[in-house]
Design a protein around this nucleic acid. Structure first.
Length: 149
DNA sequence: GCCAACGTTGGC
DNA sequence: GCCAACGTTGGC
């Protein structure tokens, strides 16, 4: 099993949206490194939901319920996520389905930064990457901080 | 709203 | 293939 962290701005997709939907396609990612991480996800992998921009914080835990498949928005010429170079035969962008396991008590970026054992998190080293890997240890530390074992 | 960090684009 | 210019992300 692998562990990941995905970011979302609340205006784009909030934890409330996720709580309502329970299952969502993690689409619209248009960055190659993030795309590669989405493609590497396997069913059952754990995924932390992170709110970026205002009040940055980890807010939930999800799991991969369907591994990545082509993001349909890349073929939709009316979508702002349309990619003229992508074809159904050669798709460029991929999305998994994520299922929310539970919302977590808010764990702020400010708090995360103070935890010495988390200092190597990708979140700090490559803060702009919107889909990033976590080590098992990082994941367990974070779940511990949220009071979940 | 500012700005640092980073990714992408395009001219050469 | 290099790199300057530009656009975007995201914390503050």
């Amino acid at each position: 099993m692998s562990y990941w962290l995905v970011k979302s701005e609340p205006e784009a997709y909030s934890i409330e949206d996720f709580e309502r939907d329970r299952v969502t396609r993690w689409d619209c990612v248009r960055n190659y490194q993030a795309r590669n991480n989405l493609q590497a996800m396997q069913s059952g992998d754990r995924v932390l939901f992170y709110r970026s921009s205002k009040d940055p914080a980890i807010l939930g835990e999800a799991e991969v319920s369907t591994p990545a498949y082509p993001d349909p928005l890349q073929f939709d010429s009316k979508s702002e996520y349309f990619d003229a170079q992508a074809t159904p035969e050669k798709p460029r962008w991929f999305s998994p389905d994520l299922t929310l396991r539970r919302s977590l008590p808010m764990l702020s970026l400010e708090h995360l930064k103070k935890v010495a054992m988390l200092k190597d998190m990708v979140l700090f080293k490559n803060s702009r990457l919107s889909v990033q890997p976590l080590t098992k240890r990082e994941y367990e530390i974070i779940m511990g901080l949220c009071g979940v074992k």
